[in-house]
Structure formats: structure tokens, C-alpha cells
């Protein structure tokens, strides 16, 4: 067998082993839930912050669902990245052409960050006050082109 093929088969076998145990750990944007998940959506570890439970049962369910989805997407993306590293970008693109876009490429499931509470909201932008006409006729400072 040609050495290139042997090398590719070894890389494929190693990749298969790596992907079988691959997981990704993600913290929800609100910092109250952390999930480790496999690319197939299996939850391998789940940590709930006590403050999340204080937000109520519905919030717990929603945040866990979102975090598992984010962790699964991260694991799928990592498996795409590992495929590209082991077998080349061309092979990763071929896999995408068969299996669909990687999570990084597709934007179908972003978690919309919650609106910040009023006290954290950024201050409203005030309209800029109109420029006062410069009475100084100094041509050097009047023409900002020298900054370019």
C-alpha cells in the first residue's frame, strides 16, 4: 500500500478514536449553568448554580436546554475542526457537503443574550451638540487632511 494511503488510514483511525471520546464544555451566557456534552447531544456533566434555581423552574428548564444545545454545537464544531486538522480542509469541506454546515458556519441557533437589567443597561446616547463655528482662520488646523 502506498505510504500516503497508509498515513491517511492511520490518521482516520486516530480521528475515529478521538471523535468517540470528544466532548465540549460550555457555560451559558448568564454564567449559571455549565454543560459538558458529546457531539450527539449526550449530557456528560451538568452543573447548576444555586442562583439559577432561585429564578424558578421554567428558567432552569430553558437555560439547561439552551446550554446543552450550545455544548453540543461546540462539540460538533470541534469534531469538524479535528477532521480538518487530521485529514485536511478539503475532507472537512467534503464532510460538510454531505452532512450539512458546521455549527460555526450556520447561524440557525444562536442564543439571544438576555436584555440587561435596567441598572446594567448602557446609558442612552445623547445627541452630539452642534459644532460651534470656528472663528480661527488657521488653515493648518482647519484642514484635517494632514492627519491621514
Amino acid at each position: 500500500m502506498a505510504p500516503v494511503n497508509e498515513e491517511r488510514m492511520r490518521a482516520t483511525e486516530q480521528l475515529r478514536r478521538d471523535l468517540a471520546v470528544l466532548t465540549a464544555t460550555v457555560e451559558h451566557p448568564n454564567g449559571l449553568c455549565t454543560v459538558t456534552a458529546s457531539p450527539a447531544g449526550e449530557i456528560r456533566a451538568l452543573h447548576l448554580h444555586p442562583a439559577l434555581l432561585r429564578q424558578g423552574a421554567q428558567a432552569v428548564g430553558q437555560v439547561v436546554t439552551e446550554t446543552v444545545r450550545l455544548a453540543t454545537n461546540a462539540a460538533v464544531q470541534t469534531s469538524f475542526n479535528k477532521t480538518a486538522l487530521a485529514l485536511g480542509d478539503g475532507m472537512a469541506i467534503d464532510v460538510e457537503s454531505i452532512a450539512g454546515d458546521s455549527p460555526f458556519r450556520s447561524t440557525w441557533n444562536p442564543v439571544v443574550p438576555p436584555k440587561p437589567p435596567a441598572e446594567q443597561a448602557p446609558p442612552e446616547r445623547r445627541p452630539r451638540s452642534p459644532r460651534v463655528a470656528d472663528t480661527d482662520d488657521d488653515a493648518f488646523f482647519d484642514n484635517p487632511s494632514w492627519l491621514r
Binding site: P50, A57, Q62
Partner: peptide, 19 residues
């Protein structure tokens, strides 16, 4: 082959604590 579609927690379940 994918993540859970929905996780529903009852109010009584909160008494189990985070772990």
C-alpha cells in the same frame, strides 16, 4: 442523535438542590 429539544422542571423539583 441530537441535544434534548425540551427540558421541563417542576417547581417541586427545585427542592432537590442544584446537585
Amino acid at each position: 442523535g441530537g441535544p434534548p429539544q425540551q427540558v421541563v422542571v417542576s417547581p417541586a423539583a427545585l427542592r432537590m438542590g442544584p446537585q
